[in-house]
Amino acid sequence: MRVDTVITLDNDVNCLLLDKASYNDENYFLSVILDESEEPSDEYIVLKEIVENNQYSVERIVDEAILTELIKLFTKSFGEKVDNLPEFDDNKTSNL
């Protein structure tokens, strides 16, 4: 699974994958649930990627010990994203 993709789960919930972090050889994704009109909702979740028999599945993570480690990784990544943001140019907003 890749960041910047929308995955559709088997219960028809769509999640936009915002960031990825690897912890203890597992991949985790910070994601936002999309609503019926495919707009991001206020529901953010952390998903663990599971690959079994060539089939991808995910599990929502609420374990605080894991979340604490992941939040550090996501926060660092967020800091890097902010550093790399271009200056806001009123005339060039298409890719901002």
Binding site: T5, L18, V32, Y44, S77
Partner: peptide, 29 residues
Amino acid sequence: KHYAVKKSRTAVIGSYAKTLLTFGGISTV
């Protein structure tokens, strides 16, 4: 609960929007 991923598709998302959503995700979690 395990949820199988039925399909995936690429999203086009601007750098600011993505950063803001990531921030929203971190603070919400």
